[in-house]
C-alpha cells in the first residue's frame, strides 16, 4: 500500500474520461474537413481562433465562478462597459491610452467585486446579483456612450490586428489568458480554494478557508477577464459599441459546461473551457462554410450544447 500510494489511475482511460470534449472537437474538425475543402486551411483556422477568442476569454473568467458553484451572467455587459470606458477616456477625454486601459480593467474588476459583495455579504443568489449587474453595466455603457459607438485609440486597436500579417493578436491574448487561468486554478491558493468552495462550501469554511474573501477574488477575476474580452472585441471592430457582446455570457457559460465543468461546482478546467469555446466557434464556422442559414445555426448549436452535456453525464454515470 505504501509503495503505490502515490500512483495514479490507469493513464489512458482517465485521460479519455477527462477529455471527452477534446475528442468531440477532433471528430467535428475531421467531419468538417471532409465536408468542406475550405475548412482545413491556415486562414480559416486562424479565423476560427479569432472568432473563439472573445468567447474563450469570457469563458475563462466564468470558469472560476462556475467552479465555486456560482454563475456570472454579467460578463457580456461588463465587457461592453469596460471597452466603452476605455474608448471614452482615451478618445473622448484625451487620457493617454495606457491609463485608459488600466481604468477599463479596473472597471471590470470593480463590477466583479460588486457582484461578489452582493453574493458573499448580501447573501443574494449569484444568478440574481449578476443579472442585476448585467442590467446596470449594459445601462451604464449606453449612458456613457450616449448610445453611439466610440472610436478606439489606434494603439489599442492593434490588439485586433495580426503579427506579421498572419498571426492574429486576439488568438495570442486568448492563449495568454488560458495559461493564466490554468496556473491560477492549478497552482495558486485562490484556485484550489475555488474547487474546495464549489465542492463543499461548509467544509471549506470549517477548514479555515475565508470563503467570502475567496469569492471576492473569484468574481473580481471574472470581471477583469470580461474587461480584457471587451477590449479585444472593440479592437477588432476598431470601435467600442455599447451593445457589443450581447448574449455572450450564455456562450461563455456554454463553453465552460461543454468543457466538462459542473454547474453545481467543484469541477472544471481551463483546457476544457478552451475546447468548449473552440467547439462553438468551429461549429459556427463550419455551418457558415456549408451555407447553413443563420436561423438553423442557432438550432444546431442548441442541440450540440444539450448533447455535449448529456454525453458527459452519461459517461460519468457509466464510470461510477
Amino acid at each position: 500500500m505504501s509503495t503505490n500510494v502515490l500512483s495514479r489511475q490507469p493513464v489512458m482511460k482517465s485521460w479519455l474520461a477527462e477529455n471527452g470534449s477534446l475528442a468531440a472537437l477532433v471528430v467535428l474538425a475531421i467531419a468538417l474537413s471532409l465536408l468542406s475543402g475550405d475548412f482545413l486551411t491556415v486562414t480559416n483556422l486562424l479565423n476560427v481562433g479569432v472568432q473563439a477568442a472573445v468567447t474563450a476569454i469570457l469563458a475563462f473568467g466564468a470558469t472560476f465562478v462556475i467552479i465555486t458553484g456560482g454563475i456570472d451572467l454579467s460578463v457580456g455587459a461588463v465587457a461592453a462597459l469596460s471597452a466603452i470606458v476605455l474608448a471614452w477616456t482615451a478618445t473622448g477625454s484625451g487620457l493617454p491610452w495606457p491609463v485608459a486601459t488600466v481604468i477599463a480593467l479596473v472597471v471590470g474588476l470593480a463590477c466583479g467585486l460588486v457582484n461578489a459583495a452582493l453574493i458573499a455579504y448580501g447573501k443574494l443568489p449569484p444568478f440574481i446579483a449578476t443579472l442585476a449587474m448585467l442590467g446596470v453595466a449594459r445601462g451604464l455603457a449606453l449612458v456613457v456612450s450616449q448610445g453611439s459607438p466610440i472610436a478606439m485609440p489606434d494603439a489599442v486597436s492593434h490588439l485586433g490586428d495580426t503579427i506579421g500579417g498572419y498571426l492574429p493578436v486576439p488568438v495570442l491574448v486568448m492563449a495568454l489568458m488560458g495559461v493564466i487561468t490554468a496556473v491560477v486554478l492549478n497552482r495558486t491558493y485562490a484556485g484550489r480554494a475555488m474547487y474546495a468552495i464549489g465542492g463543499n462550501e461548509e467544509a471549506a469554511r470549517l477548514s479555515g478557508i475565508k470563503v467570502n474573501r475567496q469569492k471576492l477574488i473569484t468574481y473580481a477575476l471574472s470581471g477583469a477577464f470580461a474587461a480584457v474580452a471587451g477590449i479585444v472585441l472593440a479592437s477588432r471592430l476598431a470601435s467600442a459599441q455599447p451593445q457589443a457582446a450581447s448574449g455572450y455570457e450564455l456562450d461563455a457559460i456554454a463553453a465552460v459546461v461543454i468543457g466538462g465543468a459542473s454547474l453545481s461546482g467543484g469541477k472544471g478546467r481551463a483546457f476544457g473551457t478552451l475546447v468548449g469555446a473552440l467547439i462553438l466557434a468551429v461549429l459556427r464556422n463550419g455551418l457558415n462554410l456549408l451555407s447553413v442559414s443563420a436561423f438553423w445555426q442557432q438550432v444546431v448549436i442548441g442541440v450540440v450544447i444539450a448533447l455535449a452535456v448529456l454525453l458527459d453525464t452519461l459517461r460519468r454515470r457509466g464510470s461510477t
Binding site: R192, Y195, A196, G199, N200, E202, A203, A204, L206, S207, I209, G266, K267
Partner: peptide, 15 residues
C-alpha cells in the same frame, strides 16, 4: 461539513 466529497484524498487531506 467535513469533506469535499467530489475531491480526491490528497486534496481533502491538504485542505
Amino acid at each position: 461539513q467535513g469533506l469535499v466529497l467530489g475531491a480526491d484524498v490528497a486534496e481533502n487531506l491538504g485542505l
